Amino acid sequence: MFSLPKKVTLIEVGPRDGLQNEKNQVETDIKIAFINKLKEAGITEMELTSFVSPKWVPQMSDAREIMNQADLTERSIVLAPNAKGVALAQEAGAKSIAVFVGVSNTFNQKNINRTTDESIEALTPVIFKLKEEGIFVRACISTAFYCPYEGKIDVEECIELCRKFVALGVDELSVADTIGMANPLESYELFIRLRQAFPTVLLTAHFHDTRKMALANIFASLQAGIDRFDTSAGGLGGCPFADGATGNVATEDVVNMLASLNITTGVDIKKLCEAIDVIAPHVSHPIETGMYQLYEKGRN
């Protein structure tokens, strides 16, 4: 009989990953209200924003204002794609910074105009400097399972990229099914291998729900011993480079599933749905996740 973790940490990515590609420009005060409500629900780790070019990601153009107004904690995570973004994040007071690289060369070239090796080379001095300054570094591994251009990714390629980040001293690996094509067997295989290879590094699984497989993949990852998951309230988000990638797995649905398995998260699902109430009127599509719909019906 397999064993499951007794407690799971959910890293809320809605304010950043969930909103970065949103068509409607969400006002800063709405984002702050959303963030505050998520904290009230019991979320302790969260991606707040990203310091990227407003030309390419206009939704994140208020990154500095978000940092100024949010009640920052040690695990208020800020995404920064390069040295310039990292410098801006630090100037704004970030204590936890996320960098990202895809396993797929083609994905990297189309996304950031660099190969995987070139990306690692550019990030090496950045990560060394961050660790010298005591900054928590989260490495986001994109296209860990499948790439929209190259198809299925070899497990060994993913592990090797993770190994390079671990050698640089990162604190966390967030390993992503970027286009939502992984199945539970693939999820179990990769994460059991990663746990064996990197027993002292925080391992986080990040699943998209393109084929409605995210909860099944999370269950498989739990069996592999993973106890950290990126989730997005209301299932906000998606991959701009993959047709049909319908968003991140919904925080409320994950909380519900874990509760049914007697796994604690510290997250109050009612307050979580109240946080979704804040953001729902301001996004370009209705929020139709299972637990949020039940919550809505219960109010009517």
Rank of each mutant, 00 (worst) to 15 (best):
T289N: 12
G235Q: 06
G266P: 07
V267A: 10
G225P: 03
R299T: 08
V267L: 10
L222R: 07
G237Y: 05
T265G: 01
D253R: 11
H285P: 02
R299W: 12
G235A: 09
T246K: 11
F219H: 15
I287G: 03
C273R: 04
E288S: 09
A280G: 03
V278G: 04
T265V: 00
T289H: 12
P240I: 10
T251A: 14
E274F: 08
R228L: 10
V255H: 06
A242C: 06
A245P: 00
V267M: 06
S232A: 15
F219M: 15
S284N: 15
G238Q: 07
T264H: 10
L258E: 11
S284K: 08
N256Y: 15
E274K: 15
L236I: 02
E296D: 05
E252C: 03
T289F: 07
R228Q: 14
N300H: 10
R228P: 02
K297C: 04
R228E: 13
A259H: 09
E296I: 13
S221H: 02
Q293L: 15
S260E: 12
P240Q: 13
V283A: 06
A224P: 04
D243M: 14
Y292K: 09
L272C: 04
C273T: 03
V255A: 09
V249Y: 03
L294Y: 06
R299V: 09
I226R: 01
A250I: 05
M257K: 08
Y295P: 07
C239G: 10
K270V: 13
L261G: 01
S221P: 00
N300P: 00
A259N: 15
I269Q: 07
G247F: 01
D227M: 04
T264G: 11
G234N: 10
N262Y: 10
N256C: 09
D227R: 00
F229I: 13
D277S: 14
A245G: 07
A275Y: 01
I287P: 00
A242I: 11
M257I: 11
E288L: 14
V283L: 10
N248F: 02
F241R: 07
P240S: 13
G225T: 06
L236V: 07
A242V: 09
I287H: 02
V255P: 08
N248A: 01
F241D: 15
H285N: 04
D230K: 11
G247A: 07
V267R: 00
A250Q: 05
A275H: 03
Y292Q: 02
K270H: 12
Y292S: 10
A259T: 04
Y295E: 11
